[in-house]
Computed example of a mutant assay.
Amino acid sequence: MKSIVIYPENPKQFSVIEAFLEEMKISFKSQGEIKISEEQKKSILHGIKEAEGGKFISEEEADKIFEKCFK
């Protein structure tokens, strides 16, 4: 069975989604907020900026680089 990950943007969205899932008798698991450091956040935002600017490689290219690193 497939699963869906949902990222509500605020507590109201969260409670509406939670109420809907309960009403529909859909099983789910909620987790607390994910905590990341400022350095991790900067790194993620930098990666997003690069990707938006077209600075990324294909999965195949990444696999080749990965294989070279672990030979």
Rank of each mutant, 00 (worst) to 15 (best):
E23K: 07
E18L: 10
I44M: 03
P8L: 00
S27H: 11
D63A: 15
I4K: 13
M24E: 15
Q13S: 12
E38S: 12
G53T: 04
Q13W: 09
K68M: 13
E50Q: 07
K64F: 08
M24T: 06
F20M: 12
K25V: 08
P8T: 03
K12L: 13
K68T: 03
N10T: 08
L45M: 11
S3G: 11
G32W: 06
K12M: 14
I65E: 11
S15I: 12
I6V: 02
K42M: 06
E23Y: 09
C69W: 05
I65V: 12
I57T: 05
F28H: 08
F28T: 10
K49A: 12
Q31M: 12
S30W: 14
E59Y: 13
I17N: 00
I65N: 02
F20A: 13
S58M: 03
F66S: 10
F14H: 04
G32Q: 06
F66Y: 08
N10W: 10
S37T: 12
K71T: 15
Y7A: 13
E59R: 07
S58R: 00
K29E: 15
L45D: 13
A62E: 08
E61Q: 03
F14D: 01
K41G: 07
S37N: 07
E60Q: 07
E59L: 14
F28A: 11
E22Q: 15
I34Y: 10
S3D: 11
Q40S: 15
A51Y: 10
Q13F: 04
F70Q: 12
E61H: 02
F28R: 08
P11W: 06
E38L: 15
E39R: 05
E61C: 00
E38Y: 03
E9F: 10
E52S: 12
K64T: 06
A62K: 04
K35D: 14
I36R: 02
I4M: 02
E61P: 04
I17K: 02
S15M: 05
K64Q: 04
I65H: 01
F66D: 15
F70H: 13
S30Q: 12
N10C: 03
K12E: 14
E23A: 11
E22M: 11
M24P: 04
I34D: 12
K35R: 15
K35M: 14
F20Q: 08
I65G: 01
K64W: 00
E22C: 05
K2P: 14
I57F: 06
K29M: 14
P11T: 07
V16C: 02
I48R: 07
F66T: 07
V5T: 02
C69V: 12
M1P: 01
M24K: 10
G54K: 03
E38T: 08
I48T: 01
I65R: 04
K35Q: 15
K42C: 10
K71F: 11
K49G: 09
E38D: 09
V5Q: 05
E22R: 05
I34K: 07
S15R: 14
K2C: 05
E50P: 03
